[in-house]
């Protein structure tokens, strides 16, 4: 059980404490203690399951941003064999808030790219809280083009609050860097599988998000604006974020209904952070299956299909 319980997980605290207390008595050979621990553990599991079945969009936002939620590098660690990280955009810098490289996914050689959030204060600052500068997007594009050159599938992982809004980012063309990725990703002639693993924050997320199959983990979110930002604009009050989260329809389940994503991957009970290995295993199976569906399609046809997929997005009325 992780230490960092979320607000809505508080009903579990009492039970967890009782289990903890009982565990300190296990040296006393009393079968009743074991039985009680087992009973309480079941009860706790049951409660957790109940809570996670009915998460609100705002609660899902908390899970998606959980400090222990597995990051891109955590998934790479489990999913990719012989991973070699590649750095830099060959123009200005290496951006640690996007990681990428080459490695083996099962028996395939692939290019992997993802947003990277840090852990702990130092790690978070080093990774700029997962908010890329233009260099990050240019590195990502460079690696995608490397994949295309050698005809390797591309796997991307999305987990960012958004592109970094800084002076340097603007000076070095943040908007143009994101735009260029969208422009190029829709025409790369290799399979691209996108997985939203945590937070999909706006254009800074989409810049790695144009693919043939879009996967979302069960408790991840993907939105045009953060609920806090939306609340600040709509009501001048960032604390109304929970309401904004409802309104924005930003959960994996909402996006599936809207036809924006293709597949939802189930997370372990209580979220991916409670069992990253199981989460990674489920994700692996889904990515494998998605790759199998499309890898025999010729690259040029794949690019046309990707164009068609994205050109259909949107909802409007038309008079004839």
């Amino acid at each position: 059980m992780p230490k960092e319980l979320l607000e809505f997980e508080k009903p579990l605290i009492e039970i967890e404490e009782r289990i903890e207390k009982l565990r300190s008595y296990v040296q006393i050979e009393d079968p009743r203690i074991h039985a009680e621990i087992e009973k309480l553990t079941k009860r706790s599991q049951y409660l957790l399951e109940r809570i996670y079945l009915k998460l609100t969009p705002w609660q899902k936002t908390q899970v998606a941003r959980h400090a222990s939620r597995p990051t891109t590098l955590d998934y790479i660690d489990i999913l990719i064999e012989d991973f070699v990280e590649l750095h830099g955009d060959r123009h200005f810098a290496d951006d640690p808030s996007i990681v990428g490289g080459i490695g083996k996914f099962g028996d395939r050689s692939v290019v992997v790219i993802g947003h990277q959030k840090g852990r702990g204060t130092k790690g978070k600052i080093y990774r700029n809280f997962g908010m890329p500068n233009p260099e990050g997007y240019r590195k990502a594009l460079r690696l995608m083009q490397l994949g295309t050159k050698f005809k390797r599938p591309i796997l991307t992982f999305i987990d960012t609050p958004g592109a970094y809004p800084g002076i340097g980012a603007e000076e070095r063309g943040q908007a143009g860097a994101i735009a260029r990725n969208l422009f190029e990703m829709c025409r790369l002639e290799v399979p691209i599988i996108v997985s939203v693993i945590g937070e999909g924050g706006s254009g800074g997320a989409l810049a790695l998000g144009v693919g043939d199959r879009i996967i979302m983990l069960e408790h991840s979110i993907y939105s045009v604006i953060s609920p806090e930002g939306c609340a600040a604009i709509l009501w001048g009050d960032g604390t109304r974020a929970p309401e904004a989260a409802d309104t924005l329809k930003m959960t994996a389940q909402d996006l599936k209904k809207l036809g924006v994503i293709d597949i939802i991957v189930k997370e372990p009970v209580g979220g991916a952070h409670r069992d990253p290995k199981i989460a990674a295993q489920s994700l692996k199976e889904t990515i494998s299956k998605a790759l199998k569906e499309i890898e025999s399609i010729p690259g040029d046809k794949l690019a046309v299909m990707r164009y068609e997929k994205f050109s259909k997005m949107g909802v409007y009325k038309e008079d004839h």
């Binding site: 994101i178 735009a179 969208l182 990703m185 829709c186 706006s202 254009g203 989409l206 998000g209 144009v210 993907y222 939105s223 045009v224 924005l248 329809k249 930003m250 909402d254 996006l255 809207l258 924006v260 994205f310 050109s311 997005m313 949107g314 909802v315």
Partner: peptide
């Protein structure tokens, strides 16, 4: 919402 974000890709 997300549909407007997708207009960027489109």
């Amino acid at each position: 919402g997300i549909l407007s974000l997708m207009q960027m890709a489109k």
